[in-house]
Amino acid sequence: MGLKCRVTGDVLVVAVDLSRIDAAIAIQFKEDMRSETQTGPDRVILDLSKVDFIDSSGLGAIVAVRKQLGDARRLDLSGLTPTVKKVFQLTRMDTVFKIFPDLDDAMAATAS
């Protein structure tokens, strides 16, 4: 469901190919993310550049995925569109995740 995954070097990139992560899809999204990230590199980048809208259910699903990955792994975010960014800011979740303007920036941060 709307997730495009690829491993590049030490990073698993999950690109969300959905315009919304909302209550109607949050549980499915969480399950799919869980299975896609169960194995693989320690660092996961979730690219949200195609997502125009997220609600608190979608946000909760991303937090749940972060918790499933545990302390030994990382979940970074890239490409937040304006409304998605606003939800992260208003809930202070922008202080919990490392957020990159786009996927290239997130990938470049791997190399350094």
Partner: peptide
């Protein structure tokens, strides 16, 4: 506003609706 400055295990997965 749910507290987010906490350990990973305690991060809230809900309760944001009314705050927003």
């Amino acid at each position: 506003q749910p507290a987010v400055a906490c350990e990973l295990d305690s991060l809230p997965e809900g309760g944001f609706g009314w705050a927003l």
